[in-house]
């Protein structure tokens, strides 16, 4: 699956206005979204740094190629991956509409963690393609996780837990495009690593510190293409995103993000002998 994205910054004071404009553009009410992201990093294969760099002038060509191949094999799986948990209401009481976490009577978000559950998914995102394109294009893969000890499983799978964070925001859908206006809050480190994925132990949202002190949001417009190798689908998605960019021109500037900021590769420490 491929993901095509455009990003834009939404200052906090513009947030409500942007939501209203988006509601108008997409002809739908915003869908509230809460997510927990657990970031994992693949373990570096032991001894990788001992493999010589290809810089030396000595050694014949064949040996060089061999080293290159070995390095490529060892490095190919070394990425940051994430477990993404979407927080939803576990049951749908009368006052909770459409399983949303929005209490219409009190006009506020339901924060009772006991009434919530998490749908987990494993998410791999490649570094965006380096070709010059009007959008960020990257290979992605999502796998649903039903149940179990997430952290332990990932650990045995060869992924080390790095950090976690919390995302709040609103989603809109327009044709094939998902518009996600979101911001990041930092989550405290869990006392026990097994509690990391337990939402019952997460403090209420108001106690979570925002990553961006200006309280700004990020607007992400995304189209997922099931088969990203079909050029026609890709072109159509790019056209649609650019049309949206044009529509929202007055409200927010959408642009591809810095490719290296979205880089999921893990830097390999180079040791020179």
């Amino acid at each position: 699956m491929h993901e095509l994205s455009l990003y834009g910054a939404v200052p906090a004071e513009d947030h409500v206005q942007i939501l209203q404009q988006l509601a108008g553009v997409t002809r739908m009410q915003p869908q509230h979204v809460e997510e927990i992201h657990l970031v994992f990093k693949a373990r570096t294969p032991p001894g990788l740094e001992k493999v010589h760099g290809s810089g030396g002038s000595q050694g014949n060509q064949q040996q060089q190629n061999e080293i290159q191949r070995l390095k490529g094999m060892l490095q190919s799986g070394i990425y940051f991956v994430q477990l993404v948990g979407t927080i939803v209401a576990s049951q749908t009481p009368a006052e909770l509409q459409n399983g949303q976490l929005f209490d219409t009577e009190r006009n506020e978000l339901v924060e009772d963690r006991t009434q919530q559950k998490v749908n987990w998914r494993f998410e791999f995102k490649d570094t965006p393609e380096s070709t010059k394109q009007p959008t960020n294009t990257r290979l992605i893969s999502r796998t649903r996780f039903e149940d179990g000890e997430m952290i332990a499983f990932m650990d045995l799978f060869g992924f080390e837990y790095v950090n976690r964070y919390y995302i709040e925001g609103q989603k809109f859908y327009n044709q094939d495009t998902t518009i996600f206006v979101h911001r990041v809050r930092q989550l405290p480190t869990a006392d026990n690593i097994r509690d990391t994925s337990d939402i019952a132990k997460i403090p209420p949202r108001s106690e979570l510190q925002l990553l961006d002190p200006s309280e700004g949001f990020v607007l992400q417009a995304t189209i997922d293409i099931v088969d990203g190798n079909v050029q026609e689908l890709k072109d159509r998605a790019v056209r649609q995103l650019l049309a949206l960019k044009e529509t929202l021109k007055q409200a927010v500037t959408l642009a591809p993000a810095d490719r290296l900021a979205l880089d999921t590769r893990i830097p390999i420490p180079v040791r020179r002998i």
Binding site: A9, H37, K125, V184, L211, D212, L260, T264
Partner: peptide, 26 residues
């Protein structure tokens, strides 16, 4: 948008690259 981006700058928010970096690498 021009004014919007301007006000973001004025409030010295975190650049989007850093937000993305945090979201990718934790």
């Amino acid at each position: 948008a021009r004014a919007a981006s301007h006000s973001t700058l004025a409030r010295s928010a975190i650049p989007m690259e850093n937000i993305h970096r945090f979201m990718t690498k934790g």
